[in-house]
């Protein structure tokens, strides 16, 4: 075999390489399609099943006992809203201020790195464990299930997400505009509130919405905190109905009527999540100044 023949392109080799290239391309396209199938199947099935089961009563009535038809999940929708509001009121401010610490005070410090790491780890703790924690922290001491326990548990789940996105968004604020504020004699706290946070606001709001969307669909942490109820919510110290819980209970029941309600509930839950995310995006994108970013 001469050197010359080794250098000449080998036809079989080229064909083999080109074939394997096409094969891999085909596999990756097929794989992607295979992933999109269940997604589309779930969404289509959800809209189909859910929309056909939705009616006015669903939004205005509490659940009916087994055997009676009709009834709705109005109390669950209200309950979920209350619990999520409570969670956001606690989780978002704490999360944002924690992110401010990491970005503005903790950069380069061991404590900052440690907190950042623990936040990531807390983010990965399964929601069922957070449910037990909420139970052990609050329900055990109150001696009964409560919406308060549910709200606090979900708030705890929001904090790490909000903290980390706030930190990341604050890091993108140019140092130059912080200097501009310092140069005007603005105290640090005022600079952070009016310049850093305001400049990073669109990203931070998106982060908060993602955290909200994540806990809005959570069921496991509510099992041993909110517990569920078939009545209208009265106060925070009582068990309260919540949409994901009710969907779970209905889905596992043997009754067709309840299955119907579970589908309708799922459609409402997903719509609520999407709409609230979309709404906040829309509101924050309005009222901007020309040429601002």
């Amino acid at each position: 075999m001469s050197t010359n023949s080794q250098l000449r392109p080998n036809r079989a080799n080229v064909l083999r390489r080109s074939a394997s290239n096409h094969l891999v391309t085909a596999i990756s396209v097929l794989g992607t399609l295979l992933v999109l199938v269940p997604l589309i199947a779930i969404l289509v099935y959800l809209v189909y099943k859910g929309a056909s089961s939705l009616n006015v009563a669903f939004f205005t009535h509490t659940p009916k006992p087994v055997g009676e038809s009709g009834g709705g999940m109005a109390n669950s929708i209200v309950g979920s809203s209350i619990i999520l509001l409570l969670a956001s009121l606690i989780g978002i401010p704490v999360g944002i201020l924690g992110g401010v610490y990491l970005a503005e005070y903790g950069a380069g410090k061991t404590l900052g790195a440690g907190i950042r790491f623990v936040a990531d780890v807390l983010n990965g703790v399964p929601s069922i464990v957070m449910g037990i924690a909420g139970y052990a922290l609050i329900v055990v001491h109150q001696r009964h299930f409560s919406a308060l326990a549910a709200g606090v548990t979900l708030a705890i789940m929001m904090v790490p997400t909000v903290t980390r996105t706030t930190e990341e968004m604050l890091m993108t604020v140019p140092h130059a505009i912080r200097e501009a504020a310092y140069g005007l004699g603005v105290p640090r706290w005022r600079m952070i509130l009016s310049i850093s946070l305001r400049t990073a606001a669109p990203g931070i709001i998106t982060g908060c919405m993602l955290a909200f969307a994540r806990v809005a669909g959570e069921t496991a942490p509510l099992l041993f905190t909110a517990f569920g109820s078939s009545f209208w919510p009265h106060n925070l110290n009582e068990p309260m109905a919540a949409l994901p819980l009710q969907i779970f209970v209905y889905a596992m029941s043997p009754y067709d009527e309840w299955h119907r309600l579970a589908w309708a509930g799922s459609l409402v839950l997903i719509t609520l999540i999407m709409v609230s995310v979309g709404l906040v995006r829309y509101v924050t994108s309005r009222g901007r100044l020309k040429g601002g970013h």
Partner: peptide, 15 residues
Amino acid sequence: LAAIPSVVYGLWAVF
């Protein structure tokens, strides 16, 4: 896919 709540996956899986 990540935005769909776990309980909705479950519902779809059951039926």
